[in-house]
Structures are given as structure tokens and as C-alpha cells.
Design a protein around this nucleic acid. Structure first.
Lengths: 243, 243
DNA sequence: CAGTGGTCTAGACCACTCG
DNA sequence: GAGTGGTCTAGACCACTGG
């Protein structure tokens, strides 16, 4: 019996075994799984743990439950690409697509927060924010322009916010102990201004996707704001919408 | 003790009581909740049920948990508007914003499925699809153009697919017993063609958001495809992205 | 080390679906 | 009515955090 590096928990064990059997094709798409009590005893876990595992698989779209009927292996292929529900950095996103991520610093400065920023981040008046603008690349090709707005109040004296540009999540955690837990992401279609067009190597007026995000830490504090611009044809974002 | 209409389950009871106390301000933002065993006994439910309730509240962003520390009332305001993770019809979405939804049928016809459609819906060759195009309105103002593609194989002989245009989810369920469970939604920024511009009353080249969706039923079958176009300034979509 | 949330178990009963 | 998933309970132990 293979043991994976970590993940001893009963739920993980059940999830892994089921997922493997489904992905390897031992369980036919469309076929019914054994009943929950049966499966639980077969896998040597409690029914509760099994149910947690099944829930995870259902979230990934691998199985479908029907109350009073049974649990079935989903018979449509996975298909899913992006998965916007998960908050990952652009670099992680690019790496996940099998390409080489890069980041070019365009500018790093400090200005007064706009009223809009004050509202979004819950700042008091007259606060300063560090503004860090970068171009993200995949295999050296520009794929996104990202502008981060970080209140200087959170940063140490004379801290160079530009140093965070390559990996802001990791940087905040390592340098400042701030753990980003989720982002509220507003999805806005827009068109390329001349400035954005030249940075992204698209024509002016081309369709862009703007992800306008407020990042919140594990204490519920809104830590920073970011705007990321993606050309429509160079990235594909997907969300699974449940009824 | 108030009883709400339905929702007797222990989890729902716990969730409601906590949510009420948070929203009414009896629990200060940022304050710590009692420990789970305490809360569970106070609310008269098992710790397991309480934990399910807390998980739901965490998903809504009302509370935040920190392992080994406690559970806290999130201190940022809710802010959330759209919530793209939930699959709701455009009419429901509009009604949820407090406006009057409407639907105008533009055309209803039948054609051969494109290769792209065949791939997305897993069709065999030479299948026919019903194409239903509508303009969705909010308080009589156009806010979206929606085109649905439904394989005729799923429809009864001589069924008028145009009849579904007002409420396709309900129609499919009532007429055909098909229950849509989720959609795989691709998010695509685009610009208005002349045809779309006139229907949406925006200028040509204006930024639009296209939600390109494949709808899947409770058996994992991909039932129909839809494309919905929204002007950027008339709708706002939000996703909560968790790390 | 004490206190917290995270996970697990075994057993019970409820709610839904379908023949 | 038989069989399925949905929910609940009580009690136990594990894993993390912070003083």
C-alpha cells in the first residue's frame, strides 16, 4: 500500500483512493458507487469522514450525489481550466499552466490614498499608500499588468515595497507575518488604454479583463488592493457556479 | 422563541442565531466567539452541527477561524454584491438587486451544431440545436443579451424552445424533468459588435463581459450552452477567492 | 503547557426516490 | 416499503497557537 508523503487523515485517505480509482478508470463514468455505509467500511473510515471526502470530490465535479438514489461517477469530462475561486498569485497561475513565470517592475512609489481606496480598504483620512506596478510574463511574453496598493501603515519604516513585486503573498507573510486568506474579486471587462496596450503588446481598444481585488488577511483585515489587467486572448478564467 | 417558516435543522438553527447576532451587532466585529464546545451547548446543538454552521458563516465571510486561537467576527464589512459562484438565472439576479426583470425574445430557430458546440456539449455529429436569443431587461432597460443553444435531442417533438426564454431553468425542470446542478462558466472580456451595441444600447466597441457557460444536470450530463453579454457599467460581478 | 479549533468514530434517526 | 443519501449526537483524541 502506497503512502503519500503527508495527509494521513481518514478523509484524505478516502479521497485519494476514490479519486485514483476514478481517474484510472476503475470506476466507470456514470456508474454508481457502493452505498455510503458500505464504502466507509471498505475504506476503513467512518461514514462521516467518507462523506467529507465525497463532498470534496463533488466540489471537483468528479462525483454527483442524488438524494435517495445514490452517488455516481460524473460522466462528463473534467474540462475545468482556470478555477478563479482559488486565490493564487499570477505567477502560480502561470506556473500551473506549465509556463515560466516572470515579473518586471515598472515603478514603485508612494502617494496619498484616493477616496475610493480609503473606502475599499477602510482607511482613515490622509493615509499614504505604496504603489507597485509590474508586468507579469509567461515564457518572457507579457500576459498581465498588475498594480498593487499597500498602505504604508502596514510596512516597516523605509521598507521598499518594490521588493515585494515578485511574490507579494509570500513576501507579506515572511517579512510582516501577514497571511492573506481570501480576496474579494470584482470582475470588470474593459478596453486597453494606450499605456496598457503598449505594456501588454496589444492594440489600443482591445478587450481586457480587469480583476479588481481587495485582499483580506486571517484577522479579517483588508490589507491591500490590486488591479490586474489581462488580455482576453492570453488567459482563460473559469468559475464553477453551483445552483 | 421565534421559529422561521422552515429550516428546523440543528445546523440552520445555529447558523441563523449566530448570523442574527452578528448582523444586529450583538457581537462586536473583531471579537472572539465562545469556544466551540461552549457555543454548541449554549445553542443546544452538537459540536459537529455547530461546526457546519460556522463553516457556512465563514464562507459568507462573516467569521474567521484561526486554528489554536479561536473564531472571530470578521471586522470588515460584507461589501459583497454579485456572488458569481452561485448559479442563478439572470432574472433572479436582477430581482435580487431589487429591480424588475424582463425578457424579450429576439429569435428562436434551429440549426446544425458547430464543431465547437459538439465538443463543449459532447454531441455526436450532425446534431441539431435550438438557438434562442433574448434581451434581458431590468426596469425595462436592456442589461444583457443571452443566446442559449439546446440540442433538440433533449426536446420533445415540435417543442417550441422559444417558450423557455423567460425561465429556462424552471422550464427544463417542469417540462422535461431536467435539473441543472451547476455551470462551467468561462469569463471572457470582449467588445460590442454593431449588432450587440444596438441591442444593449451602448456604443460599438464598448467593453462587454461574456459569460460563456455549459450547464450540467444532476446526472453529470451537459445539457445546454449559453452565452450572455453584459455591458461593463450596468452589472457588477464579484467572486470570493479563497487561498 | 493550557486552551483552541481540526478530525475522527459509532450509532441513530430523518427525508427523499422509486418500484 | 425498501433502500439511499442527509443530518444529528456524544465522546474522544490530534494539531496548532501563544504565553
Amino acid at each position: 500500500m502506497l503512502q503519500s508523503s503527508r495527509a494521513h487523515t481518514a478523509t484524505h485517505i478516502a479521497r485519494q483512493m476514490l479519486e485514483e480509482q476514478i481517474r484510472e478508470g476503475f470506476l466507470e463514468p456514470g456508474s454508481r458507487l457502493p452505498t455510503e455505509p458500505e464504502l466507509a467500511s471498505k475504506l476503513g473510515v467512518s461514514r462521516n469522514s467518507l462523506r467529507e471526502a465525497l463532498r470534496a470530490l463533488e466540489d471537483c465535479g468528479l462525483v454527483t450525489k442524488r438524494h435517495g438514489v445514490g452517488t455516481f461517477v460524473t460522466d462528463s469530462r473534467p474540462l475545468v481550466k482556470g478555477g478563479l475561486e482559488r486565490l493564487v498569485s499570477i505567477a502560480e497561475f502561470i506556473a500551473g499552466e506549465g509556463r515560466q513565470p516572470g515579473s518586471v517592475l515598472v515603478q514603485s512609489s508612494t502617494t496619498a490614498a484616493s477616496p475610493e481606496l480609503e473606502r475599499r480598504l477602510g482607511l482613515t483620512e490622509n493615509e499614504q499608500v505604496a504603489v507597485v506596478e509590474t508586468i507579469k510574463t509567461a515564457d518572457s511574453q507579457p500576459v498581465a499588468v498588475c498594480i498593487d496598493y499597500i498602505p504604508t501603515a502596514y510596512l516597516p519604516e523605509n521598507f521598499d515595497a518594490g521588493a515585494l513585486h515578485e511574490a507579494i503573498f509570500e513576501g507579506l507573510q515572511r517579512e510582516l507575518g501577514i497571511v492573506i486568506k481570501y480576496a474579494e474579486c470584482q470582475i470588470v471587462p474593459t478596453t486597453a488604454t494606450a499605456a496598457l496596450a503598449s505594456k501588454l503588446d496589444v492594440s489600443e481598444g482591445a478587450a481586457l479583463l480587469l480583476l479588481d481585488q481587495v485582499h483580506v488577511d486571517d484577522r479579517g483585515k483588508r490589507v491591500f488592493h490590486s488591479k490586474s489587467y489581462f488580455p482576453s486572448n492570453r488567459f482563460s478564467f473559469v468559475v464553477i457556479r453551483h445552483r
